[in-house]
């Protein structure tokens, strides 16, 4: 059974912090403050923050920032890490040029 998540619960006001300017998602240059504010805007999951801010949408697809973003969301929500659904991963596992992706080849050798 999924966890019920009432988005109306009071998180308290957004309190600016000294390190809000620190970049967390390097690929898309998203800062800690932006992530924290996103939570206050109602983005309570990694996926919502991702779709809202683009964290994890760059070339590394969240391999570098994933855990960091999760930690910030968890702290802002005042919840436990286990409560947060992990992000979705998708094909391709590494960025691939369009002409290569288009170039389906037959495997050589005896079939």
């Amino acid at each position: 059974m999924r966890k019920i998540n009432d988005r109306s619960r009071d998180l308290g006001a957004f309190v600016p912090a000294d390190d809000d300017q620190m970049i967390i998602c390097r690929c898309e240059e998203i800062t800690k403050g932006e992530i924290r504010q996103a939570v206050h805007d109602g983005m309570f999951t990694l996926t919502e923050v991702r779709r809202y801010l683009r964290t994890g949408m760059g070339l590394c697809q969240g391999q570098t920032c994933g855990k960091l973003v999760k930690g910030i969301i968890v702290r802002e929500l005042g919840t436990a890490p286990a409560e947060l659904e992990p992000a979705f991963s998708r094909v391709p596992m590494r960025p691939i040029e369009m002409k290569v992706f288009a170039n389906e080849q037959e495997v050589q050798g005896d079939e």
């Binding site: 949408m57 697809q61 391709p92 369009m98 002409k99 288009a102």
Partner: peptide, 10 residues
Amino acid sequence: LQDVKIVRTW
């Protein structure tokens, strides 16, 4: 666009 990299499909 042939050299542009695709990062994600869904």
